[in-house]
Design a protein around this nucleic acid. Structure first.
Lengths: 327, 327
DNA sequence: CGAAGTTGGTAAAAGCTTTTCTCAGGCTAC
DNA sequence: GTAGCCTGAGAAAAGCTTTTACCAACTTCG
C-alpha cells in the first residue's frame, strides 16, 4: 500500500486526487513516492464506491467484424482518454449466448452498453430496453426512446450518384443487394432521385458473383449500355469491374464504377481501385462512445436517430474530375 | 439486497453459494427469493475479495482484425462458460497507447492478458514480461519462459504441397510474401522439402497485384510453365488466379492453385473458390484462453511454444481428388 | 492571554461479498 | 439434571478506495 511508504492512509487518497486540505509539501511527497513504487489504485474498489466501473460493453452480432471493428476502434479511441475499457461480446444471433454476455456485463457493473450489428433494420436477439444502465445503438436498430447512430445511406448514395452525374455520366445503373434491406431501399431511393429512372435497379445478393452476373445481364440486353454503375457494396462493384474487364470494357474510360462500404481489402485491391462511399463507421463509434459516456455520467442526451454523413473516397474506378478521366 | 427479502445477510451468501451450514428449507427459500427478485451478486465486490475479476485483456496490433477476430472468437468461446469477459484493446503499434491500455487493464485487475498480433516474428510494442498477472502469447512472438501459441506453418505448407503432389502436379511454383517474414521462410522451407527445387520461389509482397505480377513473370519465362501454384496467402493466390484466367490458363484444369489463410472474403469469392490452408486461429484462441485461465487459477502450465496444426480447406481451385479434377 | 478561526492530518464509514467466528438453543448421554 | 455436542443462523472482518467528520495544534485578534 502506498500509504505505508508515505505516512498515513486516507491522506494518500486526498493527495493523489488533489482533494482535501493538506500541506503542499506533503501532497508532493505522497505523489512522488506513489510514482516511485508504481502505485495504482484498484479500480474494483474504486468502482464499488463510485458506482462507476469505467467499463462498457460492446455487443455485436457481426461475426466478420466488417462493421464492428471500425465502430470498436472509434469507441475505444473516444473513451481511452476517459479511462474506459471495452468488453467485446460477439453473439452470433444466438439469444441465449447474448443473454449470458449481457448478464456477465451487468454483473461486472458496466457503465453502459453499445449495441452494434451488421444491418440497420435488424435488432439484436436480446432485449436491452429495461436495463438499469444506458444503452446506445450503433448501426443496428434501436428501441423506442433510445439513442441510435446510423449512417446516412441516402446522403451517401446521393454523393455517389451526383459524382457520376458531374462526371458527365448519363446512363447510370444501380446494382445492389436484396431489396428487403432497408439500406438497399434507401440507397435506391436516392439513386432514383438523382439519376432519374433512366436505367433499372438490379437487386440481388451481396456477393461478387452477383456483381459479375448483373453486368452480364445488362450487357446482354439490346440497346445502349450503361456508362456508369453505382453498386450497393464493394463486393458487387468488384464483381462488376471484373466482368467488365473480361468483356473488354474499360474502367473508368468507358464505364465509371462506384462501390459502397470502403472495405479496403476489397475496394483497394480491385483493378482499378474502387471509388466508393465510406460510412465513417469509426466516427460513428466515436460518437456512440461519447454518448454512452454522457448517459453514464447522468448528462442528458436527446433520444432519437442520428444519421451521420458518409464520405466519398475517390480512387481510380471513376477517375477524378481533376484528372479529367471521367469526362 | 437479497438479504432484505429473505431474512438475514451473510446467510444469503452461504445459501446462494451452497456453503456453510443451514437448514435445507432456508437455503431453498433464499434461492427462490433471489431468483424472483433477479438478484445478481456484484462482481466488483466479489472480485475485490477473491482477487479474481473474471476478466481478461486481449491486446492486439492487428487493425484489420484478420487474425484477431478468429482468435478473439475462440477465446470468448472457451471462457464464456467460466464467466470470464474479455477487454479488447487495439493498439496500433503505438507504444504509448499500448501502455495506457495495459495500465487500464491492470487497474481493473484483469486475471490475465493474451497478446496477439499479425505476425509470428514480431513483438507487441510493450513489455509484458514482468507483470504480476499471467500473459499468454497467441500468434505473436512471446518472451523467454512464456507460453506462446502459434500455427504450424511448416506443417500447413507441407499439407498444401503434398496435396498438389498427390494430385499429380510436378512443377509446383511458390509465390509468397516478403522473405523477412519468418512464416514465409518456414513455408518456403516446407515447400522445398516436399517439392524439391524444381521451380523457383518468388518472394514479393502480400497483395493481389503481386500475385498477378508473379504469374506474368513465370509465364513470360521460356520453357515449361508450372502446373501448380502454392501461394503464401489468399490475396496472392487470388491475384494469381485472376492473372491465369486473363491468360486463358484454366484453373484447376491446367494449373492448380492453393492459397494460405482461408480468409473467406478472399478465398471464397475467388473464381474458382480457393483451396487454402486454414491456420485454425479460433482453436488457437480457445487454447490460449484456457491456458491463461489455468495460469490465473494457479494451475501449472509448461512454458514454451506450442505449434497448432493447420488444416487444408478444399475448394475448387485445386479440384478434389475424389472428383478427379486434379488429375 | 483567551476565544475564535485556520491548518494539516487521521479515524471512521460506506460500498458489496465472502469467510470465519461466535452464539443461542436444542439434543444426547452419563 | 447437567455437561458436552450439534445445528442453524447471525456478527464481524477483510478486501481497497473515497469521503466526511473530527481533532489537535497553531495562528490571529481583541
Amino acid at each position: 500500500m502506498a500509504s505505508a511508504a508515505g505516512v498515513s492512509i486516507s491522506t494518500a487518497s486526498k493527495a493523489l486526487n488533489d482533494t482535501g486540505r493538506m500541506g503542499a509539501e506533503t501532497r508532493e511527497r505522497v505523489k512522488r513516492i506513489a510514482g516511485e513504487i508504481g502505485y495504482r489504485p484498484n479500480a474494483l474498489a474504486r468502482g464499488l464506491l463510485s458506482k462507476r466501473s469505467f467499463t462498457i460493453g460492446l455487443l455485436t452480432n457481426d461475426t466478420y467484424g466488417r462493421f464492428t471493428l471500425p465502430v470498436m476502434a472509434g469507441i475505444s479511441d473516444a473513451l481511452v482518454d476517459h479511462g474506459v475499457s471495452v468488453f467485446l461480446c460477439a453473439i452470433e444471433d444466438d439469444p441465449a449466448l447474448a443473454q449470458i454476455h449481457v448478464d456477465a456485463m451487468l454483473d461486472k457493473q458496466v457503465d453502459g452498453i453499445i449495441a452494434t450489428g451488421k444491418r440497420l433494420d435488424r435488432r439484436l436477439p436480446v432485449d436491452l430496453s429495461n436495463l438499469h444502465v444506458p444503452v446506445v445503438y450503433a448501426f443496428t436498430e434501436g428501441t423506442q426512446n433510445s439513442v441510435t447512430f446510423r449512417s446516412d445511406d441516402e446522403q451517401g448514395a446521393r454523393l455517389a450518384v451526383e459524382w457520376l452525374v458531374k462526371a458527365g455520366r448519363r446512363r447510370i445503373a444501380h446494382l445492389t443487394g436484396p431489396e428487403e434491406f432497408f439500406s438497399v431501399r434507401e440507397r435506391a431511393g436516392a439513386y432514383h432521385e438523382v439519376a432519374g429512372h433512366c436505367e433499372p435497379v438490379l437487386y440481388g445478393v451481396w456477393s461478387e458473383s452477383w456483381g459479375h452476373e448483373a453486368v452480364e445481364q445488362l450487357w446482354k440486353r439490346p440497346g445502349e449500355k450503361p456508362d456508369a454503375l453505382f453498386c450497393g457494396n464493394d463486393q458487387i462493384a468488384r464483381g462488376a469491374v471484373d466482368a467488365l474487364r473480361e468483356r473488354g470494357v474499360k474502367v473508368p474510360q468507358d464505364v465509371s464504377v462506384i462501390g459502397f462500404d470502403n472495405w479496403e481489402i476489397v475496394a483497394a485491391q480491385t483493378r482499378p481501385p474502387l471509388t466508393t462511399v465510406d460510412m465513417e463507421l469509426k466516427e460513428l463509434g466515436r460518437q456512440a462512445g461519447l454518448t454512452v459516456l454522457a448517459l453514464a455520467e447522468g448528462r442528458p442526451v436527446e433520444p432519437g436517430v442520428r444519421k451521420l454523413p458518409c464520405r466519398l473516397i475517390v480512387r481510380q474506378s471513376c477517375g477524378s474530375k481533376a484528372a479529367g478521366e471521367c469526362e
